[in-house]
Design a protein around this nucleic acid. Structure first.
Lengths: 210, 210
DNA sequence: AGAAAACCTGACCCTCTGGTCAACTTAATT
DNA sequence: AATTAAGTTGACCAGAGGGTCAGGTTTTCT
């Protein structure tokens, strides 16, 4: 790769990182090129697709963040506290960083490395959840899929209301958490066993308003 | 108004009603015209703006639905049961009918009659909420604004996952409800006193994914 | 330095959306 | 039936976004 190409790639990566984290994984590619001070043609030359760019720029960062939170959660003795911490922190990550929110929700299936990271996260979540459930703290009818959807809802809410009502999602998360304790369980949610595939499908169009 | 214009207006109203209820208030106007079998120019002639069309086609229906649910809720003796019923039914309405979801979330401030209906709904909600709170069933830190945001989150989730995971929103709503009982309150949500205006602002861009 | 390969640019194509309007068509009126 | 007012149409404008590529520029290599 020629030296100038290298430089441009770097500029593009930087701009992409900024914009992805500011506004999510769907920012217009042309805008990224604009911010990088480079023609959008160059962006296509160097990265080809949005997914490739995402993989280079977002994946590692997001994976690290998510991993950290999972570790923290698992390192807390109390199973419930660990679970609650996990939920809160993930929600916060999503609110803080739209790119991570998109990752958590499993959008952009094209980005391979990203999807791998995403799966790892789901595994971690499963462990944290299982632990809390087995400890009798988490209501037993709360499934892995439910957690994924809870995060999805949080991501959507945080993105929509983050500016004007910065605490809205936090409060919703707190109320929900209180409803997830075993002692709180009263209503019985309608049964479901969505396959992973279904969960996946359900999420990949998250936020397509139409 | 000429007879043919009358007919066209009718066709447009019908098409608009269908599409709004199928896909929400942001369907392309050209698509409505297409379904009505009429040039989009005619749509602009007869209605001028999207808001006007909404007001003619959606407002009454939505207002009636919402009103019904509120009445039902208030007619239930038990304050908590009434509140729970209200939440469930509104969520269901939102999931069933994207147009209503948009109304509940207070989008489309341009549509005057709609906004009036929307305000009435909020008043009803306030009564239902107040009653449950005073009865000691609803946790006292759950505010009117929280309910609005809960509905917003539900609308977003239902819209995104409705096809692939038809029960997801229902389950989330059930968990949340369990967290709203006074007995369930453990966590203390971060304080907020958003003004009506802020709530309004927070919602009007709901679902703008970018 | 000169040639060859690599790379960059921006004009161009596409689609989709909102929106306007001159020219044509049709209903109503006399 | 002729006139006129009302109404309709579709081409057209603008802007956003995705994506391609011929042709001009740079780097690199010999």
């Amino acid at each position: 790769m020629r030296a100038d190409a290298q430089r441009n790639a770097e500029k593009l990566r930087a701009a992409a990182a900024e914009l992805f984290h500011e506004r999510g994984l769907q920012v217009p590619l042309k805008e990224i090129a604009r911010r990088a001070g480079v023609s959008h043609g160059t962006l296509y030359n160097l990265f080809g697709t949005r997914e490739a760019l995402i993989d280079e720029v977002v994946t590692d960062h997001a994976a690290r963040r998510l991993e950290e939170v999972a570790q923290q959660a698992l390192s807390i003795e109390d199973a419930w506290a660990g679970f609650a911490h996990y939920v809160e922190k993930i929600c916060e990550l999503q609110a803080t960083d739209p790119a991570v929110a998109d990752v958590v929700s499993g959008r952009y299936p094209g980005a391979e490395r990203l999807m791998t990271a995403c799966d790892r996260t789901r595994d971690a979540a499963q462990r944290i959840l299982g632990r809390a459930r087995e400890a009798g703290a988490l209501r037993p009818d709360f499934t892995d899929a439910d957690l994924v959807f809870a995060f999805a809802a949080n991501a959507l809410l945080a993105r929509s209301t983050g500016e004007a009502a910065p605490n809205a999602w936090r409060r919703q998360a707190a109320f929900l958490l209180d409803g997830l304790r075993t002692e709180a369980a009263r209503a019985q949610p309608p049964a479901t066993q969505p396959t992973e595939q279904q969960v996946h499908d359900a999420l990949k169009d998250l936020g397509d308003t139409t």
